[in-house]
Design a protein around this nucleic acid. Sequence first.
DNA 1: AGCACA
Length: 246
Amino acid sequence: MADVKENEPDMPNGGEKEETQSSENTMNQTIYVNNLNEKPSKKKLTEQLYSLFSPYGSILEIVAAKRQKMRGQAFIVFKDITSASNALREMNGFEFLGRPMSIQYAKSKSDAVSKLDGTYIEKKRERENDQDKKKAKKQQTKKPSTTAKPKAASTANAQAAPLQPREAPPNKILFVENLPEQCEEMMLNMLFSQFPGFQGISMTTAKKGVAFVEFDDDSKSAVAMTHLQGFKVTPEKPMVISFAAQ
DNA sequence: AGCACA
């Protein structure tokens, strides 16, 4: 297994420029994307977003609406929060259909998620009014017993955490990310073709720094993955390898 | 700019 040091002190500055943090929202498995091109139809846009974001993990749902208030925006509901985190990190500011996407965590939980939790309420009949609760139950100690979701022990860590391979069932196709922009198919070929069962590379035209590598079967791809995981093409960019999503 | 889902 990979030894990961979780407690090493972070360097205050990695030389990265800190731009205005657009996402001060708390972590959410749903990401809110805006500044999208408003020309394509809702269906078309949703399709594009699916193919763009599915490499980061299973997508439960994509919600986009056509109303004036909602156009140019979309909600990508991931199955895992780490997928959302990775997608946000990687794709924020990425130029999509001629415009740089802006991505934040969604402010609230998606219905698709609530339905899986069992906490879904049919209509917006129930508004949580804190006023009422405070007045009625002043001294009541609220004890989350049943459906208490495990609160992230460190809420701030995940967003600052470096890109990590995502969890996915074995697949003969590997998803490689965090590649430097100057990385070309040729050099990936040289790296991966040394492992048995290598079939080929396919770089997505949509996004640089990402590639798919295919092997004969998932045992062969697993070998290559363990050997090349974290391999640094350049000192700043260790490649992150996962099994491709179905 | 703009945080929804019936």
